[in-house]
Write a protein that binds this DNA or RNA. Structure first.
Length: 213
DNA sequence: AAACGGATGGGCT
DNA sequence: GCCCATCCGTTTG
């Protein structure tokens, strides 16, 4: 039985207003839900990276430009950019208005819309669907999401971890699958050269869905 | 298992 | 002209 729409609830309005590192950690375990004409796809966030205003690897570290404008806007909006001429990476904007910070979403555990994800990605292997920032953008079909989109509404929503379907035989999910229970691992960020030593990558310990060990 | 190169285009010195 | 917050297929050990 397909999950009902009501099973996804956006995170509270103030969720994104915490510090960028705190949001990067809090996003682990949350659900990213993409609603498109083709159907709904969703995945559990298992890997993130924080980009700070005084951090040389951050697109916003040298001031506001046409490209990074959304990073200086209010928290809880989207910032998506083109990388290597072929892929797009999706970020959750954080920090107060006027401060350019964001959290890169690096990997998801697919939880809904496998077939649609597989078709968009051109692969069937579940582990290959969302295990990287470029991959998950393709799988969710969000490459053309306008910068500054409100992430508490369709077409792209950050939702609370979903309670399992209610009913006879429905299995109750305890803390086993939550971020807190799994534990959060901290490492340096992937694919950058500037300020590469900073411990700003976060992932759910033991998750087989992350982009890299 | 790890290393490497090609694809491909915008942003910035 | 060089640098990318990447991915994938191929080569090498």
């Amino acid at each position: 039985m397909a999950p009902r729409k009501s099973s996804y609830r956006p995170v509270p309005a103030g969720f994104f207003s915490a510090g960028t590192v705190a949001v990067a950690r809090a996003l682990l375990g949350k659900i990213l839900v993409s609603q498109s004409p083709e159907g709904r796809t969703a995945g559990r966030i298992v890997e993130t990276e924080a980009y700070l205003c005084d951090d040389a690897a951050c697109h916003a570290s040298r001031g506001e430009t046409k490209r990074n404008r959304a990073m200086f806007g209010p928290a809880g909006r989207s910032y998506t950019y083109l990388i290597y001429g072929m892929y797009r990476c999706f970020n959750v904007v954080t920090g107060p208005k006027g401060v350019g910070e964001a959290v890169l979403i690096r990997a998801l555990e697919p939880i809904e819309g496998f077939d649609l994800m597989a078709m968009r990605r051109g692969v069937a292997e579940p582990k290959a669907l969302c295990s990287g920032p470029g991959k998950l953008v393709i799988a969710l079909g969000i490459a053309d999401l306008p910068d500054g989109s409100d992430l508490r509404k369709v077409p792209l929503m950050v939702a609370e971890e979903r309670a399992e379907a209610v009913g006879p035989g429905a299995k109750v999910r305890g803390g086993a699958g939550t971020a807190a229970a799994a534990g959060i691992k901290v490492t340096t960020r992937i694919g950058i050269s500037k300020d590469a030593h900073l411990p700003l990558r976060f992932y759910l310990e033991g998750s087989p869905w992350i982009s890299r060990k």
